[in-house]
Design a protein around this nucleic acid. Structure first.
Ligand code: SF4
Ligand code: SF4
Lengths: 143, 143
DNA sequence: CTTCATAAAGATTATATATTCTTAAAATGA
DNA sequence: TCATTTTAAGAATATATAATCTTTATGAAG
């Protein structure tokens, strides 16, 4: 079940964190990424393709081909990946599903939700991928 | 697109907030609830049926039938409705979609996400439905 | 007892998302 | 040049969620 981000987005984040963590400039074939993250090769391949279009990922076809980050990990934030895959609706829509979100007609949980939303946004914006290396490696090792 | 809660859950929350806000003990036909919230009658009807099974909603068949809260608004929390419809997975699973959530192998955003999750849980647990009356009525009037 | 409005129940359809499959194009190296 | 490995692209399938429809049971009122 989707929690906050779509599966696509979750896997996209995982793959980018992985690529940042191993920290080789080299391209990694989708099969290797899939094996490390224990997810289907075809699926992560498709997701990384779309991130290639967004300019976050570099891909190389053919033998010795694969995927790598298009920029240095210190230049990529989690929010960039979320934006590219799920978009920013999460930070624009009401938790209660009311339409016409505006401070004029606040929904019942407006104040508290607004604050949480801001913090969540910060969480995705504050740090760049290189800050997560250690935890990512430990997490992946224990999958 | 689903944001945090499923559509079912969003509408369930809206309907309960509405029933609490109008604050008549009387049963309200699904058609009236649907009209107020501007959502399909059949859908909200189905959702309220399931909340009836959960014991949050009272329903009465036949002419002059309809739905009402099964308890006093001051006895119902938002989390009760969320639990009944979507369950509590949101507060148990990892934002990044890694399996095996545990403090031993924290995912890269464990600390920050954990804090937000706690606050979100509190937001749904702190107050009872009667606290939202005013804002609910204003919101519904402007739909 | 009959009529009518309603919820209950469950089948059905529609839509979105997730996943897999197939074929083509590219790049490498023999 | 040719065989091989890989991504790209997009079709096809599966699954989950959302929404609607149909039928039945219920209960109130005439
Ligand atoms: S009132 Fe708050 S939670 Fe509701 S729609 Fe507006 S911003 Fe979102
Ligand atoms: S590390 Fe934190 S965010 Fe990740 S699964 Fe565990 S609790 Fe969830």
């Amino acid at each position: 079940m989707t929690i906050i981000f779509s599966k696509k987005c979750e896997y996209g984040l995982q793959a980018c964190l992985y690529l940042a963590a191993i920290n080789t400039g080299a391209v990694i074939p989708s099969g290797e990424i899939a094996k490390q993250l224990k997810i289907p090769k075809e699926f992560i391949s498709k997701i990384l393709q779309s991130l290639t279009t967004s300019g976050l990922i570099y891909s190389k076809k053919g033998k010795l081909g694969g995927f790598s980050l298009a920029k240095d990990p210190s230049k990529i934030k989690l929010i960039d990946i979320v934006t590219a895959i799920d978009g920013l609706q999460l930070f624009e829509k009401c938790v209660l599903g009311f339409p016409n979100c505006s401070p004029d007609t606040p929904c019942p949980v407006h104040d508290k939700w607004g604050e949480l939303r801001t913090k969540a946004y910060q969480m995705l914006t504050d740090e760049t991928l290189d800050a997560f290396t250690e935890k990512t490696l430990r997490k992946i090792k224990n999958l």
